[in-house]
Simulated scan of single mutants.
Amino acid sequence: MYMTRTRLEGSLAFVTGGGGGIGLATAQALAEAGARVILAGKNEAALQTAAEALSRAGHDVRYVLLDITQSDACTETSERINRDVGPVDILIANAGIAWSDTPAEEMSDDTWTHVLDVNLNGTFWTCRAFGKPMLEREKGAIVTVGSISGLISNKPQRQAQYNASKAGLHHLTRSLAGEWAPRNVRVNCVAPGYVNTTMSSVTIKDPKFSVPWMAGTPMNRMVEPEEVASANLFLASPASSGITGAVVTVDGGYTVW
Protein backbone atom coordinates (compact mmCIF):
# COMPACT_ATOMS: atom_id res chain seq x y z
CA MET A 1 0.00 0.00 0.00
CA TYR A 2 2.57 2.57 1.03
CA MET A 3 4.99 2.06 -1.84
CA THR A 4 2.21 2.56 -4.36
CA ARG A 5 1.48 5.99 -2.90
CA THR A 6 4.73 7.29 -4.38
CA ARG A 7 3.77 6.14 -7.88
CA LEU A 8 2.74 8.76 -10.44
CA GLU A 9 1.52 6.75 -13.43
CA GLY A 10 -1.00 8.75 -15.44
CA SER A 11 0.25 12.08 -14.08
CA LEU A 12 1.69 14.98 -16.07
CA ALA A 13 4.36 17.08 -14.36
CA PHE A 14 5.73 20.49 -15.35
CA VAL A 15 9.20 21.41 -14.02
CA THR A 16 10.62 24.91 -14.36
CA GLY A 17 14.38 25.31 -14.39
CA GLY A 18 14.46 21.75 -15.69
CA GLY A 19 17.65 21.88 -17.73
CA GLY A 20 20.03 21.01 -14.91
CA GLY A 21 20.68 20.84 -11.19
CA ILE A 22 17.73 20.32 -8.87
CA GLY A 23 15.22 20.69 -11.71
CA LEU A 24 16.73 17.94 -13.82
CA ALA A 25 17.17 15.62 -10.84
CA THR A 26 13.53 16.21 -9.90
CA ALA A 27 12.39 15.52 -13.46
CA GLN A 28 14.21 12.20 -13.36
CA ALA A 29 12.65 11.32 -9.99
CA LEU A 30 9.16 12.11 -11.26
CA ALA A 31 9.75 10.20 -14.49
CA GLU A 32 11.06 7.15 -12.63
CA ALA A 33 7.86 7.26 -10.55
CA GLY A 34 5.87 6.99 -13.78
CA ALA A 35 4.93 10.59 -14.60
CA ARG A 36 5.13 12.20 -17.99
CA VAL A 37 7.36 15.25 -17.61
CA ILE A 38 7.69 18.58 -19.37
CA LEU A 39 10.89 20.53 -18.71
CA ALA A 40 10.79 24.31 -18.95
CA GLY A 41 13.44 26.99 -18.97
CA LYS A 42 15.31 29.57 -21.04
CA ASN A 43 18.37 27.54 -22.09
CA GLU A 44 17.18 25.48 -25.05
CA ALA A 45 20.44 23.57 -25.46
CA ALA A 46 20.39 22.41 -21.83
CA LEU A 47 16.70 21.52 -22.01
CA GLN A 48 17.15 19.53 -25.21
CA THR A 49 20.12 17.62 -23.81
CA ALA A 50 18.23 16.82 -20.60
CA ALA A 51 15.06 15.74 -22.40
CA GLU A 52 16.97 13.54 -24.82
CA ALA A 53 18.91 11.85 -22.01
CA LEU A 54 15.74 11.08 -20.05
CA SER A 55 13.96 9.91 -23.19
CA ARG A 56 16.81 7.51 -23.99
CA ALA A 57 16.32 6.07 -20.52
CA GLY A 58 12.76 5.19 -21.49
CA HIS A 59 10.89 8.13 -19.97
CA ASP A 60 8.21 10.30 -21.58
CA VAL A 61 9.91 13.69 -21.39
CA ARG A 62 9.72 16.80 -23.57
CA TYR A 63 10.62 20.46 -23.13
CA VAL A 64 9.30 23.98 -23.74
CA LEU A 65 10.97 27.36 -23.63
CA LEU A 66 9.63 29.65 -20.91
CA ASP A 67 10.78 32.85 -19.25
CA ILE A 68 8.90 32.79 -15.94
CA THR A 69 9.36 36.55 -15.45
CA GLN A 70 6.86 37.07 -18.28
CA SER A 71 3.39 36.71 -16.81
CA ASP A 72 1.65 36.38 -20.18
CA ALA A 73 4.10 33.68 -21.27
CA CYS A 74 3.35 31.63 -18.14
CA THR A 75 -0.39 31.88 -18.79
CA GLU A 76 -0.08 31.04 -22.48
CA THR A 77 2.20 28.07 -21.79
CA SER A 78 -0.15 26.65 -19.17
CA GLU A 79 -3.15 27.00 -21.45
CA ARG A 80 -1.31 25.37 -24.36
CA ILE A 81 0.07 22.46 -22.33
CA ASN A 82 -3.24 21.75 -20.60
CA ARG A 83 -5.04 21.89 -23.96
CA ASP A 84 -2.59 20.08 -26.24
CA VAL A 85 -0.72 17.66 -23.97
CA GLY A 86 -3.09 17.06 -21.09
CA PRO A 87 -4.03 18.40 -17.68
CA VAL A 88 -0.98 19.21 -15.57
CA ASP A 89 -1.27 17.39 -12.24
CA ILE A 90 2.09 18.42 -10.75
CA LEU A 91 3.98 21.70 -10.87
CA ILE A 92 7.56 21.93 -9.62
CA ALA A 93 8.26 25.68 -9.45
CA ASN A 94 12.02 25.29 -9.29
CA ALA A 95 13.42 28.07 -11.49
CA GLY A 96 15.48 30.59 -9.59
CA ILE A 97 18.73 32.53 -9.51
CA ALA A 98 21.36 33.35 -6.90
CA TRP A 99 23.37 36.55 -6.69
CA SER A 100 25.61 36.25 -3.68
CA ASP A 101 27.83 38.70 -1.84
CA THR A 102 26.38 42.03 -2.87
CA PRO A 103 26.55 44.60 -0.06
CA ALA A 104 23.08 46.06 0.47
CA GLU A 105 24.31 49.63 0.47
CA GLU A 106 25.93 49.11 -2.93
CA MET A 107 23.17 47.07 -4.54
CA SER A 108 21.70 48.47 -7.73
CA ASP A 109 17.98 48.72 -8.37
CA ASP A 110 18.40 46.35 -11.31
CA THR A 111 20.05 43.66 -9.18
CA TRP A 112 17.34 43.83 -6.53
CA THR A 113 14.53 43.85 -9.07
CA HIS A 114 15.95 41.06 -11.22
CA VAL A 115 16.33 38.60 -8.34
CA LEU A 116 12.85 39.38 -7.00
CA ASP A 117 11.39 39.12 -10.51
CA VAL A 118 12.74 35.59 -11.02
CA ASN A 119 12.55 34.08 -7.55
CA LEU A 120 9.31 35.59 -6.26
CA ASN A 121 7.30 37.17 -9.06
CA GLY A 122 8.17 34.43 -11.54
CA THR A 123 7.19 31.75 -9.06
CA PHE A 124 3.85 33.45 -8.48
CA TRP A 125 3.17 33.85 -12.22
CA THR A 126 3.90 30.14 -12.67
CA CYS A 127 1.80 28.99 -9.71
CA ARG A 128 -1.10 31.18 -10.78
CA ALA A 129 -0.98 30.02 -14.39
CA PHE A 130 -0.80 26.30 -13.62
CA GLY A 131 -2.78 26.45 -10.39
CA LYS A 132 -5.93 27.88 -11.99
CA PRO A 133 -6.75 24.79 -14.11
CA MET A 134 -5.86 22.57 -11.15
CA LEU A 135 -8.40 24.47 -9.06
CA GLU A 136 -11.01 24.06 -11.78
CA ARG A 137 -10.43 20.29 -11.76
CA GLU A 138 -10.02 20.25 -7.96
CA LYS A 139 -6.84 18.23 -8.27
CA GLY A 140 -3.17 19.14 -8.16
CA ALA A 141 0.11 19.28 -6.28
CA ILE A 142 2.51 22.21 -6.44
CA VAL A 143 6.02 22.20 -4.99
CA THR A 144 7.99 25.43 -4.88
CA VAL A 145 11.73 25.42 -4.35
CA GLY A 146 12.78 27.92 -1.73
CA SER A 147 15.97 28.03 0.30
CA ILE A 148 17.28 28.05 3.83
CA SER A 149 17.98 31.69 2.96
CA GLY A 150 14.24 32.24 3.38
CA LEU A 151 14.57 31.06 6.99
CA ILE A 152 17.90 32.56 8.03
CA SER A 153 20.21 35.38 6.98
CA ASN A 154 23.26 33.57 5.62
CA LYS A 155 26.88 34.37 6.36
CA PRO A 156 29.43 35.41 5.26
CA GLN A 157 27.79 36.28 1.92
CA ARG A 158 25.75 39.46 1.70
CA GLN A 159 22.59 38.73 -0.26
CA ALA A 160 19.64 40.72 1.05
CA GLN A 161 17.90 40.48 -2.31
CA TYR A 162 18.13 36.67 -2.44
CA ASN A 163 17.13 36.18 1.20
CA ALA A 164 14.12 38.45 0.78
CA SER A 165 13.02 36.70 -2.41
CA LYS A 166 13.11 33.27 -0.79
CA ALA A 167 11.41 34.41 2.41
CA GLY A 168 8.66 35.85 0.24
CA LEU A 169 8.44 32.60 -1.71
CA HIS A 170 8.00 30.60 1.51
CA HIS A 171 5.16 32.83 2.64
CA LEU A 172 3.65 32.78 -0.83
CA THR A 173 3.62 28.98 -0.56
CA ARG A 174 1.80 29.07 2.78
CA SER A 175 -0.67 31.66 1.49
CA LEU A 176 -1.54 29.66 -1.62
CA ALA A 177 -1.80 26.48 0.44
CA GLY A 178 -4.38 28.05 2.72
CA GLU A 179 -6.41 29.45 -0.15
CA TRP A 180 -6.34 26.37 -2.35
CA ALA A 181 -6.65 23.49 0.13
CA PRO A 182 -10.48 23.53 0.08
CA ARG A 183 -10.27 22.87 -3.68
CA ASN A 184 -7.89 19.94 -3.28
CA VAL A 185 -4.74 21.63 -4.56
CA ARG A 186 -1.78 21.19 -2.24
CA VAL A 187 1.12 23.68 -2.20
CA ASN A 188 4.35 22.88 -0.38
CA CYS A 189 7.93 24.08 -0.44
CA VAL A 190 11.35 22.45 -0.24
CA ALA A 191 14.09 24.67 1.18
CA PRO A 192 17.53 23.37 0.22
CA GLY A 193 20.75 24.35 1.90
CA TYR A 194 24.05 24.42 0.06
CA VAL A 195 23.56 22.10 -2.91
CA ASN A 196 26.25 20.61 -5.13
CA THR A 197 25.13 22.19 -8.40
CA THR A 198 26.70 24.35 -11.09
CA MET A 199 25.14 27.39 -9.41
CA SER A 200 27.25 26.72 -6.30
CA SER A 201 30.38 25.51 -8.07
CA VAL A 202 32.16 28.88 -8.11
CA THR A 203 31.59 29.98 -4.52
CA ILE A 204 32.17 26.57 -2.95
CA LYS A 205 35.73 26.62 -4.30
CA ASP A 206 36.44 29.80 -2.34
CA PRO A 207 37.48 29.04 1.27
CA LYS A 208 35.96 32.38 2.27
CA PHE A 209 32.59 30.72 1.74
CA SER A 210 33.16 26.97 1.88
CA VAL A 211 34.90 26.91 5.29
CA PRO A 212 32.14 28.69 7.26
CA TRP A 213 29.41 26.93 5.28
CA MET A 214 30.72 23.47 6.09
CA ALA A 215 31.58 24.46 9.68
CA GLY A 216 27.92 25.36 10.13
CA THR A 217 26.62 22.15 8.56
CA PRO A 218 26.35 19.20 10.99
CA MET A 219 26.68 16.70 8.15
CA ASN A 220 29.83 18.57 7.03
CA ARG A 221 28.99 18.26 3.34
CA MET A 222 26.89 19.79 0.60
CA VAL A 223 23.49 18.34 -0.24
CA GLU A 224 23.23 16.51 -3.57
CA PRO A 225 20.53 17.48 -6.12
CA GLU A 226 19.10 13.97 -5.88
CA GLU A 227 18.44 14.48 -2.17
CA VAL A 228 16.40 17.58 -2.88
CA ALA A 229 14.64 15.80 -5.74
CA SER A 230 13.56 13.02 -3.37
CA ALA A 231 11.82 15.58 -1.15
CA ASN A 232 10.18 17.16 -4.19
CA LEU A 233 8.95 13.75 -5.30
CA PHE A 234 7.48 13.02 -1.88
CA LEU A 235 5.59 16.32 -1.74
CA ALA A 236 4.34 15.90 -5.31
CA SER A 237 3.06 12.38 -4.73
CA PRO A 238 0.00 10.96 -2.92
CA ALA A 239 2.41 9.84 -0.18
CA SER A 240 2.14 13.39 1.20
CA SER A 241 -1.60 13.76 0.67
CA GLY A 242 -2.15 15.16 4.18
CA ILE A 243 0.54 17.84 3.87
CA THR A 244 0.08 21.37 2.56
CA GLY A 245 1.75 24.67 3.44
CA ALA A 246 4.90 22.93 4.65
CA VAL A 247 8.45 24.21 4.18
CA VAL A 248 10.73 21.17 4.27
CA THR A 249 14.45 21.83 4.77
CA VAL A 250 17.03 19.67 3.00
CA ASP A 251 20.17 21.27 4.34
CA GLY A 252 22.43 18.73 6.04
CA GLY A 253 21.26 20.15 9.35
CA TYR A 254 22.47 23.72 8.72
CA THR A 255 19.40 25.39 10.24
CA VAL A 256 19.34 23.33 13.47
CA TRP A 257 21.78 25.75 15.12
Rank of each mutant, 00 (worst) to 15 (best):
H114K: 15
H114L: 03
H114E: 07
H114M: 08
H114C: 00
V115G: 00
V115C: 04
V115D: 00
L116T: 06
L116D: 02
L116H: 11
L116P: 01
L116V: 13
L116M: 14
L116W: 02
L116S: 03
D117Y: 00
D117G: 00
V118K: 00
N119E: 08
L120R: 09
L120C: 06
N121K: 15
G122F: 05
G122N: 09
G122D: 10
G122P: 02
G122M: 06
G122H: 08
G122L: 07
T123W: 04
T123N: 12
T123R: 02
T123E: 05
F124Y: 15
F124D: 00
F124C: 03
W125T: 07
T126I: 05
C127I: 00
C127M: 02
R128W: 05
R128I: 07
R128D: 06
R128E: 03
R128P: 05
A129N: 05
A129V: 11
A129Y: 10
F130Y: 06
F130H: 11
F130R: 03
F130L: 09
G131Y: 01
G131F: 01
K132C: 04
P133S: 04
P133D: 13
P133Q: 10
P133Y: 10
M134Q: 10
L135E: 14
L135P: 03
E136V: 13
E138Q: 15
E138S: 14
E138F: 05
E138N: 13
K139V: 11
K139A: 15
K139W: 09
G140A: 13
A141P: 05
I142E: 10
I142N: 07
V143N: 01
V143Y: 05
V143C: 10
V143H: 03
T144V: 07
V145I: 15
V145T: 14
V145A: 05
G146V: 11
S147C: 10
I148V: 15
I148M: 12
I148N: 02
S149G: 08
S149Q: 12
S149W: 07
G150Y: 04
L151V: 05
L151S: 10
L151Y: 01
L151P: 03
I152W: 01
I152L: 14
I152R: 01
S153F: 06
N154R: 04
N154S: 12
N154P: 13
K155M: 09
K155P: 02
K155R: 14
K155I: 12
P156Y: 12
P156E: 11
P156C: 07
Q157N: 13
R158V: 11
R158K: 15
Q159E: 15
A160P: 03
Y162S: 09
N163I: 01
A164I: 11
S165P: 04
S165Y: 04
S165K: 02
K166Y: 07
K166P: 00
K166G: 02
A167N: 08
G168L: 06
G168T: 10
G168P: 08
G168Q: 08
L169G: 08
L169P: 09
H170E: 11
H170Q: 10
H171L: 09
L172T: 11
L172R: 01
L172M: 15
T173N: 04
T173A: 03
R174V: 12
R174Y: 07
R174S: 13
R174L: 08
